[in-house]
Design a protein around this nucleic acid. Structure first.
Lengths: 247, 247
DNA sequence: CGACATCTTGACTACAGTCAATACTAGTGG
DNA sequence: CCACTAGTATTGACTGTAGTCAAGATGTCG
């Protein structure tokens, strides 16, 4: 029962007050360009929350009460049609931003895939700060435009690539994006942590879980990838995989 | 020869100096929230340029020298794979913004579909203004987030909808977005101006031009749409079409 | 161990793609 | 005005990729 409509977040017990200065996403998140004074304001606004796998961080139709950054873990953005067809429309990794200022709700569900830790701000407070601090607005604009570019890259994949190319492209995308974090250089290759189930991979690629599985098997048969276990993919030769992506 | 690699823009002869005050996109474009003083700065920076159908406004790999807003006409954003597979990743209508500040190039081609008129700013000047004027940055952020939402909506279409649903969804999307401009209320229905060829529609929907044509014919047979001519679609009953979109 | 979720594989089907012929439309020049 | 051309659109016949349905294997957790 991975995707029950639970909302099981817990505000972390106030531990030795994490400082922004030694935050792992300090230089990549929405706060990246803040100077010490702005950082101090964020510091007193923030609170940490943890979500367990499969629980919702934000539901599509419900009022959006807080915004924030992913500190640890992976979350998915998804849209679902009435008849159950589902499409992942994004994957959020540490430093990615959740929510939209000046908007009462978002158009998709944000669900924790792994255990997720979020640095959260209450929406009105964050909006007030946004109005005053140009550094935050500029950074958020830049991050949003990068996400837009990524979304458009994914549109090419969804609209025009074959199943095999889609699977290869996902692995390459993960190898690139997760280079800080669950990627490890190996003698003669790299290991990719794939936090998604086959069904979620299918939902991300616009495929069924069966087709996804078949293509993974085919890539394995052809020596392009090796499956350490269900969610760890060993890539002996990145360029061989890259050649399978179509671009 | 619609898509030759021409770059045929012409700076408009300085006519009776258009003022921003009576610009048709004044309240929807990136300048929407500017007060008179900021508007004055934009006014002296701007220049108008016209692109004829099929010509490039921006090429993907080439340096990005200017940014701007579409004043009139329709442009497409597209990505093309080496083997020729093409995907439209966006449709730009009047008030939409072209380009990305602080970035040397964009990741897709921007091509005029109809004759397009652009209110253009040279990139460094616009960036300087962006750093000073919070109204422009905030507006651009909001517009970019709306585009991101639209891109994600399209991802659902590309990944999960059937050919028939895709075509119906495109028509509904145009009916919604183009409500100012090439839409006209009719006794018992509306007319949608479809500025794209069947091939371009296919490239937008992740279909071939044949499948696109077949689905248009099928919707016509079923009485959902009527083709006035090749590029004008009469919709007698919007809700009937909406029921075909899948959502 | 047993129960349940997840994954793999097979057999068959169907939706959209490919290839190809024909029709329609718009623009050009005699 | 009509003939000619080139681009665009429609329709048909056939193919192929990915989807569907189903059985069995593997993995995980109590």
């Amino acid at each position: 029962m991975a995707h029950n409509r639970a909302h099981k977040a817990q505000t972390d017990a106030p531990m030795a007050k994490e400082t922004c200065a030694d935050c792992p996403i300090r230089h990549r998140a929405v706060c990246a360009r803040c100077e010490t004074d702005e950082l101090a304001l964020l510091e007193q606004m923030k609170s940490y929350k943890t979500y367990s796998p499969g629980t919702a961080i934000v539901w599509a139709e419900e009022p959006l009460v807080s915004l924030g950054s992913i500190v640890e873990g992976v979350a998915s953005l998804s849209r679902t049609m009435e008849d159950g067809r589902r499409q992942l429309v994004g994957l959020l990794l540490p430093s990615d931003f959740i929510g939209r200022p000046h908007q009462e709700s978002v158009a998709y569900d944000v669900v924790a895939v792994t255990e997720v830790r979020i640095c959260e701000f209450r929406k009105p407070e964050f909006e007030a700060l946004l109005a005053k601090s140009p550094a935050i607005g500029a950074r958020l604009l830049d991050m949003t435009m990068s996400e837009l570019d990524a979304a458009r890259e994914w549109m090419l994949l969804l609209g025009r690539k074959t199943a095999r190319e889609k699977v290869a492209s996902l692995l390459i995308m993960l190898a690139r994006r997760v280079c800080t974090g669950p990627i490890a250089v190996h003698p003669g290759g790299i290991i990719i942590e794939l936090p998604l189930t086959r069904e979620e991979v299918g939902d991300f690629l616009g495929l069924t879980l069966e087709t996804t599985s078949r293509q993974m098997s085919a890539l394995k048969r052809d020596g392009i990838i090796e499956l350490q276990d269900m969610h760890r993919v060993h890539i002996p030769d990145l360029s061989a995989l890259l050649a399978e992506t179509g671009d």
